[in-house]
Deep mutational scan, measured.
Amino acid sequence: SFNTVDEWLEAIKMGQYKESFANAGFTSFDVVSQMMMEDILRVGVTLAGHQKKILNSIQVMRAQMN
């Protein structure tokens, strides 16, 4: 498990989005775990492969939080 959203993004090789997530207010796992595709688009993730990777990881995160 990760301590910060930045660490999580690095771990899934999506570190290039750290600033975008932070600027959009997605700075805690409570918020990130609620993200939908529209949120991912809003933070500027436009590549389908990256969207899928982030969404898949969020689903895993949700499962671990319950």
Rank of each mutant, 00 (worst) to 15 (best):
E38V: 10
L55S: 05
Q64P: 07
L47S: 13
G25I: 02
V60T: 12
Q59I: 12
T27W: 06
R42I: 11
M37Q: 10
N56S: 14
V43L: 14
V5C: 03
H50Q: 04
D39W: 03
Q64Y: 09
T46F: 10
Y17E: 00
D39I: 02
M36Y: 09
V32R: 00
T46P: 04
T4H: 07
S57M: 11
Q51F: 04
V5L: 04
F21Y: 03
V31E: 10
L41S: 07
Y17N: 01
K18V: 07
A24V: 05
L9I: 03
V31L: 15
K13A: 15
M36N: 15
E7N: 09
A63Y: 07
T46Y: 10
H50G: 02
M14P: 01
V45N: 01
E38P: 12
S20A: 14
R42Q: 10
K53I: 15
N23W: 07
K18M: 06
V43E: 00
N3R: 12
R62S: 09
S28W: 04
A22N: 08
N23A: 14
V5S: 02
R42V: 09
F21H: 01
M37C: 09
L9C: 02
S28F: 04
F29K: 04
M35N: 00
M65N: 07
N56L: 14
E19F: 07
S1F: 13
F21M: 04
V60F: 13
Q59H: 11
R42S: 13
D30K: 14
M35R: 00
K13M: 14
L41D: 05
D6P: 12
A24I: 05
F21Q: 01
A22I: 09
M36P: 03
E10A: 07
R42M: 11
V32K: 00
D6M: 07
L55F: 11
M36S: 15
W8E: 00
A11F: 14
I58G: 00
I40H: 00
M14H: 02
D30C: 11
D30A: 12
S28P: 01
M65A: 08
H50K: 02
V43A: 14
A48T: 12
S20K: 13
D30Y: 13
R62D: 05
N23S: 10
T4A: 07
F29V: 06
L55C: 07
R42L: 10
V31Q: 10
I54H: 02
Y17P: 01
A22S: 12
V45Y: 01
R62W: 09
V43F: 02
E38Y: 07
Q16I: 12
I58V: 07
R42A: 14
G15V: 05
A22G: 06
Q16A: 09
T27R: 10
Q51N: 04
K52G: 07
Q59S: 11
S33V: 13
G25L: 04
A48L: 13
V43W: 01
F26D: 01
N3W: 11
V43G: 06
R42C: 07
T27D: 09
N3C: 09
T27S: 10
W8M: 02
T27H: 09
H50D: 15
K18N: 05
I12L: 15
A11S: 15
M61Y: 05
I58R: 00
E10Y: 06
S33A: 11
F29H: 03
L55E: 05
S20M: 15
D39F: 02
A24L: 10
V43T: 06
A22W: 10
S20T: 08
N56D: 15
G15W: 05
E38A: 12
S57E: 15
N3D: 13
N66K: 03
V43Q: 01
K18A: 12
N3V: 10
K53P: 03
K18S: 12
Q59E: 15
I12D: 02
G44C: 03
A11T: 13
L47R: 11
Q51L: 07
R62L: 14
H50R: 01
M35L: 12
K53A: 15
E38S: 11
G15T: 07
G25Y: 04
D30W: 11
R62Y: 09
S28E: 06
A11I: 08
A11Q: 11
V5W: 03
S28C: 06
M36D: 15
D39C: 03
K18Q: 07
F29I: 14
N23D: 13
V43C: 10
L47Y: 10
M14I: 03
R42G: 10
I54K: 01
G49S: 15
L55D: 03
F2V: 09
N23M: 14
F21E: 01
Q34I: 08
S33E: 06
N66V: 13
A22Y: 13
I12P: 01
Q16S: 07
Q51P: 03
N56F: 08
L47K: 14
E38Q: 10
G44M: 02
H50Y: 03
M61I: 10
S57F: 08
D6H: 08
Q64N: 12
S1W: 14
A48Q: 10
I12Y: 03
L55M: 14
A22V: 10
V5G: 00
F21S: 00
A48R: 12
A63H: 13
E7D: 13
L47G: 07
F26P: 00
N56I: 12
V43N: 02
H50A: 05
D39H: 05
S28A: 08
Q51S: 06
Y17T: 01
V5I: 10
D30L: 11
F2K: 06
Q34N: 13
I12G: 03
M36L: 11
M14G: 02
G15A: 12
A24R: 06
V5Y: 03
K52N: 13
M61H: 04
A48C: 08
I58K: 00
E10D: 13
S57H: 14
V31M: 11
F26M: 10
A63M: 09
E38L: 06
L9W: 03
A11M: 10
K18C: 07
S57Y: 12
N3T: 12
G49E: 15
S28T: 14
M37W: 12
K53F: 14
L47D: 15
D30E: 14
G44E: 03
N56W: 11
S28D: 12
K13P: 01
D6R: 05
L41Y: 10
V60Y: 12
T4Q: 07
G25M: 04
E7Y: 05
N66T: 12
E7G: 08
G49T: 14
K13R: 10
Y17C: 02
S57V: 05
M36H: 14
E7T: 07
A24N: 13
M65L: 11
A11G: 14
M61W: 07
K18Y: 05
E10L: 05
E19G: 09
G49C: 10
Q64L: 11
L55H: 08
Q59L: 13
D6T: 08
Q64K: 05
V45P: 01
S20L: 12
K13N: 15
M14C: 07
S1N: 15
N66Q: 14
S20H: 14
M36F: 08
A24G: 10
Q51Y: 05
K52D: 12
A24M: 09
F26V: 13
M61D: 03
V31R: 14
N66I: 15
G44W: 03
S20Q: 14
